[in-house]
Design a protein around this nucleic acid. Structure first.
Lengths: 238, 238
DNA sequence: GACCAGGAGTGATTCGGATCACACACTGGT
DNA sequence: ACCAGTGTGTGATCCGAATCACTCCTGGTC
């Protein structure tokens, strides 16, 4: 028996998309009930730290609204952003499952809401409900794929141009358009973009100039209008 | 009830180390029995491909003896080695769990032996035995951590020297010595080392010269004698 | 012994991106 | 209107690793 949406853990999320696919959606009735008992919901302002790299894992966060920046910093202070999490994502799962410190810092990029599930509750849940364990395994392997993609980008992609084009493509894949173009709103600073593709602020600025000059996109205020995605793809594989 | 080692899937492995920690060791009796029914063992020569990047996942391989090189290649032909797997490691798990193509190519670096578990059998096992699912989740999160470390190395470590020092440290951590030094046998070509740390063959050659000149290590044939690990660590964090 | 291939060492040169150093635009607060 | 503070655009310079082009070495083969 499946739990009706009324019992879903993500039920009080305003914008939770594609419910069925997510970690704790569409579980059996009893599992969903247990989940609801142990979860707690909180609202966070912009810039809040859900957890910080190196902390002992307290539990996982299921993001309901808002976006969260996951980043890691070296001793010398260089920072890379490994992922921008969106509603529906589960944060801190790896740390909880393997009982290691959080490997990244999670900072909200805008006001948002998240459900928190304490570590011990989740681990118990795993043991009691095979279906939860399978879901968790799938989520972990999805996380792994994301990390793997990152490795490919960092290790194989040669130039910053290539990485930048790649980033634009992944972004625009979320707002598909019929005519082979795309449109997206820029919410990050050049600095942050640099931290994603592993380059400096200045280089990102120059990339924007260069791509605009090459007619790859144009800017209308904070929205970026991509003329042709295939043109970007050509840069990636070049 | 725990399965005695006589029923262990890794039982016919000659050198399977630290049995208890591995994915399919120390399971309940029934789970271990099922595992033994579905597994098959094979011996591979040097240079054999267990699976290739992009193939549909057929199943997982539990490595018994020998080492396996996991690598991925870009369209332009650039290759990076993401991991050197050792006996006890499970290969292809992510692909099977998430039903995506193998993300890497697995090639034996020396003659070796591995157990194969077909995709469907493993997935069924997951559903039937929560303990297996939990084990798999833990293994996946370990894989994730490895990938995450790789991201940190590629994204944060500045120079090839730093990455090289880091690599030497991870290698020597497997053969700890009391006197603050270490000793390890080189089994890889400069080319391959370059593919691990993301640099060219020539640069690796120069790194060897440079490190030797700086008295960081010395070479006795194919074995590399590290004078002081702390000295290497200083290079990493510098 | 002669030969060859694959690996290793090392110089010379090139080039791309980091770094430094500015000037400028925009925003919110006083 | 003023002024931080933050984000952006762009030139000048520097440096380190990739690339190119060799030579040398070793172990296996004819």
């Amino acid at each position: 028996m499946r739990a009706p949406y009324g019992l879903n853990i993500l039920d009080n999320c305003v914008t939770c998309p594609v419910r069925g696919e997510h970690l704790f959606c569409n579980l059996s009735l009893t599992a969903a009930q247990r989940l609801n008992e142990v979860k707690s919901t909180a609202v966070y302002p912009k810039g809040a730290m859900l957890f910080i790299e190196g902390q002992q894992p307290r539990g996982v966060f299921v993001l309901c609204t808002g976006r969260v920046k996951l980043s890691t910093t070296s001793r010398e202070g260089k920072t890379i952003i490994t992922k921008i999490s969106e509603p529906g994502d589960v944060l801190g799962l790896n740390a909880v499952i393997s009982s290691r410190p959080y490997e990244v810092t999670a900072e909200t990029m805008e006001p948002g809401q998240a459900n928190f599930i304490p570590r011990d509750c989740l681990l118990q849940l795993l043991k009691d409900f095979p279906e939860v364990a399978v879901r968790v395994a799938q989520q972990l392997s999805r996380n792994y794929y994301t990390a793997y993609e990152e490795i490919r980008t960092l290790g194989l992609a040669a130039s910053p141009s290539e990485k930048f084009a790649k980033l634009l493509l992944t972004w625009s894949s979320k707002t598909p358009q019929a005519d082979g173009g795309a449109q997206l709103k820029l919410t990050m600073t050049h600095e942050e973009i640099g931290e994603i593709i592993g380059t400096t602020r200045e280089t990102v600025s120059r990339l924007f100039s260069e791509f605009r000059k090459k007619q790859l996109f144009q800017m209308k205020g904070a929205t970026l209008v991509i003329r042709s995605l295939p043109a970007l793809e050509k840069i990636v594989q070049s």
